[in-house]
Design a protein around this nucleic acid. Structure first.
Lengths: 222, 222
DNA sequence: CCTACCGATCGGTAGG
DNA sequence: CCTACCGATCGGTAGG
């Protein structure tokens, strides 16, 4: 219904209805974008809850209000859809981290507070609202191709690059005693593992988690 | 072939061939035990590499040298086989930890060295030879029933119970600054995550990992 | 994007 | 434990 209406509206010259602003995309493209996004969102939720192999493309279609064959109009394969989920998740994570760094004026903070900022933001990405994308990326890596994996690794490097100087500085000042490379891997382990046990409805808040992490890694008190 | 030979041997009175020792089980039971173990071992490997949903019971049968329907002679269902993998992994882990504690005379060690012992042993269980069981248990929890999950939780509590007094002591002495409960979750996260990146063939050894973990958590130097 | 469909594969079972 | 098989489901496609 909505589509039919939109199509009819598109027959009217655009200028008659939208005199200002730059030209919009055609209706078809707009719809396609929405449907595509809806598929990705639903797939993220399902992949997280039931795993990639445990989710059928029919499940995903139903979640997006489509018929069983329709996802393949938008994505070449189920695997391509998985990759889209992961890629979008990583792009979003990189973006949010950049924003958090910029908003806090991170270079003015001392290293312990820099780490706090990064950890807190990481928990947000991992456990905050709409946080299915990164867990899928973390736990379904097995199901993508080597080429796709390489593309994601680049985004991951970008994300992790922001942590490196902070950890180096903490190591140099003696606050972080462990080897920096292994410390980074273990820190991400400690944080990423939280998706296994964190329950938004009870117990600790993201602030509590952040504080515990800081205390654990660099003995930083509240 | 082997089976046929064994069956023929069984027709000979046991006393004629084994004059001493307590009576053995019948050949059928012995074989069943071997086949069962072989299925569990192969399933552990496959579940780890391809995931529970990505592994077919035919794969598992082939890995054990059986025909496609035969695993169901030994296990009620694919899920029961998964549970068997997890349960055996946890029982083995609990056993090994108890042995490590006894062998080291842990109560004579000071808390930092107690933690070192537990961490080192945990890495061994997680990353040492034949270490597919625990990763499967950690990453395929989604695919077992609530009842099975409860049974494993008990074993897990037993395993974790050994860590609690150590962490408490470290907290009391100021070495561990973080909240003990959250610290425990994050420590296990840091350790368990290593199955995602650790490569036995290169870089760090299990001793290196242990040292890095100790440095990170309680600032303990080499 | 839907309809209708395909070949392949899956977990599991009966009967021996 | 094998043989032979079942119904269900799966990812994906042609044609509109």
């Amino acid at each position: 219904m909505q589509t039919a209406t939109a199509r009819r509206a598109a027959a009217v010259p655009a200028a008659a209805k939208r005199p200002r602003g730059r030209p919009r995309k055609t209706v078809d493209e707009r719809d396609d974008g929405n449907r595509r996004r809806k598929l990705i969102l639903g797939a993220a939720r399902l992949f997280r809850r039931k795993g990639f192999d445990g989710t059928s493309t029919r499940d995903i279609a139903a979640a997006a209000g489509m018929q069983s064959g329709s996802p393949f109009y938008h994505f070449e394969s189920k695997q391509a859809l998985l990759f889209a989920v992961m890629e979008q998740g990583m792009r979003h994570a990189v973006e949010r981290q950049e924003q958090a760094i910029a908003a806090a004026g991170m270079d003015r903070l001392r290293p312990p507070e820099q780490l706090r900022l990064l950890v807190r933001n990481h928990f947000e990405i991992l456990l905050g609202p709409g946080s299915d994308f990164i867990p899928v990326m973390l736990y379904e890596a097995r199901s993508i191709t080597a080429r796709q994996h390489a593309a994601l690794s680049e985004l991951r490097s970008t994300y992790e690059a922001a942590w490196e100087p902070v950890l180096q500085a903490l190591h140099a000042s003696g606050r972080l005693k462990a080897d920096v490379k292994l410390a980074r891997l273990m820190i991400f382990g400690a944080l990423n593992w939280s998706v296994q046990w964190f329950d938004r409805r009870k117990e600790a808040s993201l602030d509590d988690l952040t504080q515990a992490a800081l205390s654990l890694f660099i003995g930083e008190k509240a």
